[in-house]
Design a binder for these strands. Structure first.
Length: 242
DNA sequence: GTGAATGTTAACAG
DNA sequence: CCTGTTAACATTCA
């Protein structure tokens, strides 16, 4: 379920819940379910990989982690982490992390860091990368404070598209490359969204989970790289090390 | 049956 | 105290 574009789809699927009042809440999430009773959903937002169900005085923050999912009006065999019961419908979240935020969202989240948000600010992302000059670019692309919503697929695909070797450090990259990186990450995220909606997302992968470089037709490397130690697919021939 | 995966955080070791 | 490693979460797919 993860990565920003998928969260945007989830937000749209849940749009019709805005205005609905919770009649009861359950599940094994360690939150006080009683406070949800009688509350009306005022809005549904996302920040990166966070789904935000807004109420008057607080927000329920859902993170789908690696295997999270949700269902409307149907259940899985496994227990729901959170079950929201409304008069005419039911919403179930599975295998998610659930937290309640009591502070105003603008104090908790920088929406200009969210690659899917209208407030996205590429210049700020470039500055944040420059603030960590020794970071590897494969780690920066997973840093949610810089590229909120970017995940391992976006990381691999953006690096491939830009012909950037994942082990470049930020300080080694020309400033123009950093700008291109910020712009391309957002651009790719919207391609991701478009393809996902057409159910053809994985067909467009060029590096992620691929065996061969589509440009050079030689085997791709697959390695756990960076501080994040996530699977990284790259071509030693066309992805440049500066 | 096995292992790996679009992710994050808390606990632990040094 | 700081940094890095591991476990936990408990699904789904190949």
């Amino acid at each position: 379920m993860p990565e920003g574009p998928t969260l945007v789809i989830a937000k749209e699927k849940l749009h019709s819940f805005i205005g609905k009042k919770i009649i009861s809440a359950g599940g094994y999430a360690k939150v006080d379910m009683d406070q949800l009773y009688g509350q009306k959903i005022t809005d549904i937002k996302t920040w990166g990989k966070h789904l935000l169900i807004c109420f008057t005085d607080f927000t329920v923050q859902i993170h789908f982690l690696m295997f999270g999912s949700f269902l409307v009006d149907e259940t899985k065999r496994i227990n729901p982490k959170l079950h929201l019961h409304f008069a005419d419908t039911d919403l179930y979240f599975y295998m998610t992390s659930v937290h309640i935020i009591y502070e105003p969202l603008t104090r908790v989240y920088d929406f200009s860091a969210d690659i899917m948000n209208n407030a996205w600010d590429a210049k700020k992302a470039v500055q944040k990368m420059k603030d960590q000059p020794s970071a590897m670019v494969c780690d920066s692309l997973l840093d949610q404070r810089i590229f909120s919503g970017s995940g391992n697929i976006i990381k691999n695909e953006v690096l491939f598209r830009l012909k950037l070797h994942p082990q470049n450090t930020i300080s080694n990259l020309p400033a123009a490359k950093l700008t291109a990186l910020a712009k391309e990450t957002r651009k790719y995220a919207f391609d991701f969204l478009k393809w996902k909606l057409k159910n053809e997302f994985s067909k467009h992968w060029q590096a992620y989970e691929q065996k061969e470089c589509p440009r050079c037709e030689i085997p791709l490397h697959k390695k756990l790289l960076g501080k994040t130690k996530r699977q990284t697919y790259f071509c030693d021939n066309c992805q440049v090390k500066y």
